[in-house]
Amino acid sequence: MRIAVFVTCWGDALFPATGRAVVRLLEHLGHEVVFEPAQTCCGHMHWTAGYHPEAIALARRLTEVFAGHDVIVTPSASCAATVRTAYPRMDPALAGLPVYELSELLVDVLGVTDVGARYPHRVTYQPTCHSLRALGLGDRPLRLLRAVRDLELADLPEAGECCGFGGAFAVKNADTSVAMVADKIARIHETGADVVCATDDSCLTHLGGALSRLRSGVRAVHLAEILASGLGAAGPAPVPGGVARRADAP
């Protein structure tokens, strides 16, 4: 399958490893990945911060950049949710851009839960608010994680509660945001995990930033990076669609 990747502005600048992992993973599964170099930002930040005309201009732009693509994947539940739920509110003409969050693409579109990854860590999964409520990802990320070899999955208590990021909230209401992440980190420590995983680098910036400040030793890692770990070392992964497998990316 030909899959266009929307890496997001945040991922492009701060977390390119996530985008590289998406490319490695999808190519490993036998798909062709394309990157539209004209892509910038989906407008999520401007929309939620109240800069609506600016957000709508960015939404129109992204819709034009990805016009003609049947399957678009993004490693961000927030950006996928913006396209799916906010775009139609901005302008009904912007509805319907076929953007999938990574775990949706894998489980629903490609029909894969075992991607062939190996990740020898104790991992706890934080379902971000947009993945949980706006996209309704349910247990898709957990099914993908459970299939990873040598990965020990630890349940996170009170997992459904927000980590306190909230974009501008983290700065405008910094004290409340920090109180929330402090509680979240206490729950993460209770699991004994050495890695906390999520489907969004924005929430992971917040969690990882607080963990780093506390020198906690727990790392915040995107789902894509876990799923792209140790590929090729494990048994063969399913190759749907009969597309010829390409060599792993250098």
């Binding site: 991922g11 390119p16 985008g19 990157f35």
Partner: peptide, 23 residues
């Protein structure tokens, strides 16, 4: 206000798009 209680990772030297162009 962010760095009062949280670190920020240093942006990598190579953005995703720069990596894509090189590969």
């Amino acid at each position: 206000k962010w760095t009062d209680a949280r670190d920020l990772p240093a942006p990598p030297r190579q953005s995703f798009r720069a990596w894509w162009r090189r590969r």
